[in-house]
């Protein structure tokens, strides 16, 4: 309780009231598809973890956009995730150690927390030429994944690259890149998106901390709480679609009126994600709100199957 009190005092000093915080927990609980009776428990996860669950975050063939996305998390703030909620044992973008000290950290964490850590993977794995197109500390991504992933309690693939191969796996896929599940022949929890909304990672982790298990998944390994409906089904412009009110040129009167982007190539009808509901950057906006069609970035192989992006489905 003392820790919880301190937690709220600190929130308060940052101008975040207990009420705001509870509002976030309610939002998160709803996003996860849990009943409202879970709200206090969700709050507890953030306020007073006993031992912070260890996380090993691996970077493979990626652009770091998924890590950057997580850095934009505002409820909880990233410093709280790192200092008070999780124990981020290895993460190349933020860790202080470098070189062999960094390698040592990875090795130590995997041994010490064998069977207990959450492994988050960002990026695809090069498989051609003995995995030679992508290495860290002289080891191929493939070797590292084979070593670390089987020892994790759970593996979460963040972003479309680790989930399904993503951009490096787009045709002609010069390095033979694959998603983690594909490269290792295992089932993973996938949070696709380019990058995905950090709220869905937070929701997945909270689910794990709260219930001791991963959330319910669809056949592509995506949590149903986030990927259960199409963009089209939840789009605020849906009524314009039903009324045959379409944008046919960017910058037009119809664009200014916020008509449906279907004829501009919107992939919303074929894309499962909660962008329209959760929105990005603390609910500021999402691509369709900014007048741009959805490019289908959370679907497998979207760089090939959804292109050319500006042609009608």
């Amino acid at each position: 309780m003392e820790k919880e009190k301190e937690f709220y005092e600190r929130l308060n000093s940052k101008g975040v009231s207990r009420r705001d915080f509870m509002k976030f927990c309610t939002f998160l609980t709803a996003t996860m598809g849990l009943s409202s009776s879970f709200v206090p428990k969700v709050a507890e996860v953030f306020a007073a973890p006993k031992q912070r669950p260890p996380v090993v975050w691996l970077h493979f063939g990626e652009c770091t956009g998924c890590s950057e996305g997580l850095l934009r998390s505002m409820y909880p703030w990233i410093d709280e995730l790192v200092l008070e909620i999780l124990s981020v044992e290895y993460h190349e973008t933020i860790m202080a150690a470098a070189g062999h000290q960094a390698e040592e950290n990875l090795h130590n964490a995997v041994e010490k927390y064998a069977g207990k850590f959450i492994c988050v993977v960002e990026g695809a794995i090069a498989t051609k030429f003995n995995g030679g197109y992508g290495k860290v500390a002289g080891k191929s991504f493939l070797e590292i994944a084979q070593e670390v992933v089987p020892k994790a309690a759970a593996t979460v693939c963040i972003g479309s690259c680790s989930s399904f191969g993503g951009i490096p796996a787009a045709k002609p896929n010069p390095g033979g890149y694959k998603g983690v599940g594909d490269a290792l022949g295992i089932k993973t929890l996938n949070l696709p998106g380019c990058p995905p909304n950090p709220i869905n990672l937070v929701g997945t982790i909270v689910n794990y901390l709260l219930l001791g298990k991963l959330p319910a998944l669809d056949e592509l390994g995506r949590p149903l709480f986030a990927y259960g409906k199409t963009i089209h089904d939840t789009c605020p412009r849906r009524a314009h679609f039903e009324n045959d009110e379409f944008v046919e040129e960017f910058g037009s009167e119809e664009a200014a009126l916020g008509y449906c982007l279907y004829k501009m190539g919107c992939r919303g009808p074929e894309t499962y994600n909660n962008c329209a509901v959760a929105k990005f950057n603390d609910g500021t906006s999402w691509p369709v709100e900014a007048g741009h069609p959805c490019i289908g970035c959370s679907q497998p192989d979207f760089w090939d199957s959804m292109t050319p992006f500006y042609e009608e489905l």
Binding site: P195, A290, G291, H292
Partner: peptide, 25 residues
């Protein structure tokens, strides 16, 4: 959030197009 306002999201804003920008609204 500045990027999200005129770009829909950050990272990887999505409002540029060849010929201009879509964030007219």
């Amino acid at each position: 959030r500045m990027h999200a306002i005129f770009g829909g999201k950050n990272p990887h804003p999505q409002s540029l197009v060849v010929g201009g920008i879509t964030a007219i609204r």
